[in-house]
Structure formats: C-alpha cells, structure tokens
C-alpha cells in the first residue's frame, strides 16, 4: 500500500476575492513506502503548497490526500497526528529555533507528541546523531551555534518526531558546498537506516539526480512528470521548456551524442559518465 496518495488535489488561495489564485490544480500521485522522491519545479510551481497539503497545514479546496490509506481530513480534530507522521523541514529551518537549549528545541516535537522523558531522550539523541549535531552542542543555546549548526539542529527537531514521511524543502539552501554534501549524505544515511519515505524539494538537479529514486516535476500548479530520475532527465527538451534543466553531466553526454559520439546519454552522475567515456575509448572501466 502506498504511504501517500493524492487524489485530484486542488488548492485555491483567496477563493472568492479579487486575489483568487489557483496554486495547485488536479494533482494526483502515489508514493510507496521507503521511496526517496525528489520534487523539482521552478519558483511558483506549487511545490511548497503541495508540501504543506501533505501534512495538513493547508486543506485542499478539492480532492483527497491519503496517509497509509486513510484520508487525512476524515477527522479534522486529529490533524495533529498527521503532522507527527509527516514531518516537514521548511526552508531555512534555523529561523524557527526558540528554546533555551538545543536539546530542548529538538525535544519540542516529541514533547508535543506526549512521549515519556526516556522516549524523548532517546529520540533526541538519535536525531542528533543522524544530523551530525554534536553531544556538546545539546546544552548550548541554539542562538550560539553557527548557521550550518543551527540548520542541523532544526532538522534534528523534525527527525526527532520519527515521522513515517520526512519532507525537506531546500534543506541545503545557503550552505557551502562541503556542508551541502555532508548534509545530503546524512539525509541519505537516515533514509537507508530508517527505511522510511523521504521527499526532497531542491533546485539542484545534480543532487536530485544522485539520490532520488523517482522525481516529481511540478509546473504551474500541475504535475508535469513523475518518473525515475533516468526517465525524467532523458526528456531534457521538455524540462527546459518548463524552466528547468538536466544535470550538467547529463547535458554534456547529450551534447557528445549530438556531435556523433555514440555514448549513452542517460547518465546522471560524474562517475557514470567517467565509466561511459572510458568504455567508449576502449579502456577498462575501473576508477
């Protein structure tokens, strides 16, 4: 059974006023348990709206959303439970830190769930380990941490709820390249260990190509594609029409092919490209 299923969801902001705007229109999809989904789309394509619908921060104007087979708006009083099961890390999550210590801030979610002290402690420490929040930071004030450290603490605050589905909206925005790679590796590791579902919204095609099983492409509030990374990026022309692009390395391989060099153009990472080119040149494909 799919963990998340969206059925014709539509969202209209400011319905009935002069500011009426359809942010999402008839979007349907299914996401299986344990999948790593990348969500791409240019600014204003409805990504953030979609994400907020999935955990019940917004209520769809039409259509239904199922979590583990149950309509999340069936009992509006229990929407908080949906939010514990679908954790969202918003853009620049470090701006939401507020507690006296990092430990307390990470514990905010589990505490709201009504867990016991021991359970909270266990979840906080596990989450801290996943996101690389060091033991000695836990008793510090979150405002004494550096930007990157704050980001990790804030992400830990969501992971600590141990959600079935973890949604991250541009978690690496504004980080330096090393910090970005480290954070992505930690998210991948978290996904591998916990085996739960992760949705990653990103503008970096390279990142998405490298780690997502499937990619959801949004355009003007509609679902443009939902397919494996290889299939999505093989439609480079269409992506460009949507204001997106393919990863640079894929682009290079496509250009090589256009020049008449018969290489496989369905390449998503530099390593694959390296092997492919070595193969083409007739060498052995070991790095």
């Amino acid at each position: 059974m799919s963990v998340i299923k969206a059925e014709g969801i539509k969202l209209v902001y400011g319905a009935g006023t002069s500011f009426e705007k359809t942010a999402l229109d008839d979007v349907s999809f299914e996401i299986e348990k344990g999948e790593f989904i990348g969500i791409i789309g240019h600014t204003g394509s409805g990504k953030s709206t979609l994400v907020q619908l999935l955990n019940g921060l917004l209520k769809p104007t039409a259509g239904r959303i199922f979590l583990n087979g149950k309509d999340i708006w069936q009992e509006p009083k229990k929407i908080r439970e949906v939010r514990f099961k679908v954790g969202i890390v918003f853009q620049y999550p470090e701006y939401q830190l507020f507690e006296e210590t990092v430990y307390k801030d990470i514990a905010f979610g589990p505490k709201n769930m009504g867990l016991s002290e021991e359970e909270i402690d266990e979840k906080v420490r596990a989450a801290a380990a996943f996101t690389g929040v060091r033991e000695e930071w836990l008793q510090k004030s979150p405002f004494d941490l550096s930007g990157g450290e704050k980001r990790r603490a804030a992400i830990a605050g969501v992971i600590a709820m141990d959600p079935d589905v973890l949604i991250l909206d541009e978690p690496t925005a504004g980080l330096d390249p090393l910090g970005r790679d480290a954070l992505l590796a930690q998210i991948q590791n978290y996904h591998a260990v916990r085996k739960n579902t992760v949705l990653l919204v990103s503008h970096s095609m390279e990142d998405i190509a490298r780690i997502a099983d499937r990619i959801l492409v949004m355009n003007h509030g509609k679902k443009a594609m939902l397919d494996t990374a290889a299939n999505v990026f093989s439609r480079g022309r269409e992506l460009e029409e949507l204001g997106l692009r393919v990863p640079q390395i894929t682009k290079i391989m496509m250009l090589l092919k256009e020049k008449g060099i018969s290489v496989n153009e369905n390449i998503l990472t530099t390593e694959q490209a390296f092997n492919e080119i070595i193969n083409y040149l007739g060498g052995s494909s070991r790095i």
């Binding site: 939010r83 918003f90 979610g109 709820m161």
Partner: peptide, 12 residues
Amino acid sequence: KIMNAQKARGAD
C-alpha cells in the same frame, strides 16, 4: 512561516 513550522512540529 514560523507558525507553520511550529505547527509542523505539533505545536497546538
């Protein structure tokens, strides 16, 4: 934004 972020962590 902040309200949404805290609600997402179960703030009531």
